[in-house]
Design a protein around this nucleic acid. Structure first.
Lengths: 178, 178
DNA sequence: ATTTAATCGTCCGAATCAGATGGTCCTAAC
DNA sequence: GTTAGGACCATCTGATTCGGACGATTAAAT
């Protein structure tokens, strides 16, 4: 039984639904935007369409309100849980993609003039400083919830990443003219 | 004159062509795969189609061989250079996207069983160790080429990122059972 | 000459994306 | 107790991106 290739979004949805027991797409959206979504964005339209796809594949079950907003509640099926667990069990995972638009500019620094790259670096420092503050504020609220152990680990990498970038850009800003 | 929104790929192509003076899509592909491409992949089909789009917009010029492989050589136009420089001059740049498939699994660690996450972490440690070695090998070959100052900076962030991930996953591996 | 390997280019169906649009519900001001 | 505004929620669409199959050309090896 070869399921037609599931995407990262598929597993995200599967995992969230499984963790929440029952969830509407809107709730998924909320979940994502306050966790992983900080550095890995998922368009919300996907979070509405993907559950339906997974339901078609028999990995989720739908339960739709028949009045008003006609919300759809999704829950995971046996097959869905099996798929999710198989995925979690497999220690293989693709390579990371790191898309830092600022870095793309810096890569072409030779073609820029004057203090362009310095200003870029300064702007980035500001950006990452703020990002770091935001993350650290969140950290305070979840760091000792034992239930959130794994999401917390995720956040820690976010923080480490932000610190790395901050240091990198600060260094660039410092050693460049201007 | 509002150019119809250029993508990251557009600027990548613009920048590479500008830096190389003249380039074929194949050369762009080579360039990318030995630099930025290590952590920000661009499908090669884009590197073939994007130059044509940019040529349509008047930002590149094409010169096609009329025999054999009919290679297309692209070079940048005045308008192209202006567009590129305007982009470089603007210190604003979008937020970074960091897509670490391993992290997606870890996020759902609560749903996994036994040593799954430990094995994941170990696999990631291995992955990043190798990645780091590769980067550091490259570093040796370019670190004192003054022309490659900016690409080298890019590589340094790649290295820093790999080290951060390595430390993160090593820590996870260590504090987990198994 | 022939095979093999490396180089190079195009194409297409599928997945992804941003964002416009529109409906439903709650609340609190009147 | 109506109504206006804002928050909540859902769907759709056209454009872009994506991976990768496929095929052609050239260079190297036998």
């Amino acid at each position: 039984m070869s399921t037609p290739r599931l995407s990262h979004t598929s597993y995200l949805v599967l995992g969230l639904v499984s963790g929440l027991d029952k969830a509407t797409p809107y709730e998924l959206k909320q979940m994502v935007s306050t966790s992983l979504g900080y550095f890995w964005t998922f368009p919300h339209s996907q979070l509405y369409s993907e559950p339906d796809r997974l339901a078609d594949l028999g990995l989720l079950e739908v339960d739709q309100e028949d009045e008003g907003r006609r919300r759809k509640q999704y829950s995971i099926t046996e097959a869905g849980r099996a798929e999710l667990e198989a995925w979690l069990r497999d220690p293989d995972a693709g390579r990371a993609e790191v898309r830092e638009p600022g870095l793309l500019k810096l890569f072409f620094g030779e073609l820029a003039d004057g203090g362009d790259m310095t200003r870029l670096a300064q702007a980035r420092v500001k950006l990452y400083t703020e990002e770091l503050e935001r993350y650290e504020a969140i950290e305070k609220t979840i760091s000792d919830e034992p239930d959130l152990r794994y999401p917390y680990a995720t956040l820690r990498l976010g923080i480490a990443w932000a610190k790395t970038c901050l240091a990198f850009w600060a260094d660039i800003a410092e050693r460049l003219p201007g």
